[in-house]
């Protein structure tokens, strides 16, 4: 792998707080190594801003390993940037070349209000889970783990859905700001498992109701969500969600 350095122009969304109006600011950064991660490139800029007496760019991040779901930037119009199946924190600078201009914005959706700069609130996702994204089993109630055999294929499918990191890129990618991919991943995870069976109908109905209440848009099957999802959660989950919802409503739950 050939390493190189580059100079870049960054157009970054700056917004002091949720109530103030924001706008783009332009910064140039030089001598950026192709081995850096995207966030390390922002670190470099922030260090400079602090030294110059400016206000560093606020952004969410924690694990920097693509698993916590905290990082959340729209890079050149794409949530989490140009690499498929990759979070912002895992994006590396070899995706760019010398002289590029990169536009960086927060995830945009009514249900994700901006807190500052590139940081948004995704607490609506927590409330969707509160509406039923769990199995009601108190500590100490469990039977032996191997007392519930589960077909490997089903277990694998449930795992694939459960791999959602709750980042919200699907919402940011969707022109309607729908949360269907996120919601369907959770409904699928639990509907595929026998443990999820007793609450299956009630779960889907209350979670959908909560999603609507939070102000997410409706799904018009354009599948932008799947294309941008860093964990490549499949839209087949949305089809499953629709079936689950229909079943539950037909049986009057």
């Amino acid at each position: 792998m050939q390493h190189y350095t580059m100079n870049l122009n960054l157009k970054v969304w700056r917004q002091k707080s949720g109530t103030s109006t924001g706008g783009f600011e332009t910064y140039s950064v030089s001598n950026i190594s192709s081995e850096m991660s995207f966030l390390e490139m922002i670190d470099v800029l922030n260090e400079r801003l602090i030294k110059e007496g400016g206000d560093p760019i606020a952004f969410d991040h924690d694990c920097r390993e693509g698993i916590c779901g905290m990082c959340s930037m729209v890079i050149d119009g794409r949530p989490h940037g140009p690499w498929k199946g990759t979070t912002t924190c895992q994006l590396h600078m070899r995706a760019f070349k010398d002289g590029d201009t990169i536009t960086i914005e927060p995830f945009r959706a009514n249900a994700f209000p901006v807190i500052k700069d590139l940081m948004v609130s995704r607490s609506a996702f927590d409330r969707i889970i509160q509406a039923g994204g769990y199995v009601s089993v108190n500590t100490g109630n469990a039977v032996d783990g191997n007392a519930i055999p589960i077909e490997k294929e089903k277990a694998d499918d449930a795992f694939a859905a459960a791999a959602c990191i709750g980042c919200g890129a699907c919402v940011a990618a969707c022109k309607n700001a729908s949360a269907m991919l996120f919601l369907s991943a959770k409904v699928s995870h639990l509907a595929l498992l026998p443990q999820g069976e007793p609450e299956r109908k009630q779960r889907v109905v209350s979670m959908v109701a909560q999603m609507d209440k939070e102000g997410f848009g409706s799904c018009t099957n354009t599948y932008a969500c799947e294309a941008e999802c860093p964990k490549e959660i499949s839209v087949l989950n949305i089809a499953r969600l629709n079936r689950e919802y229909l079943n539950a409503s037909l049986s009057g739950s």
Binding site: V137, T139, N141, A142, G145, F159
Partner: peptide, 13 residues
């Protein structure tokens, strides 16, 4: 392990 399986943690099988 029992508790986590009951919660629906999708362990490898």
């Amino acid at each position: 392990i029992d508790q986590c399986v009951a919660q629906g943690v999708p362990f490898a099988r």
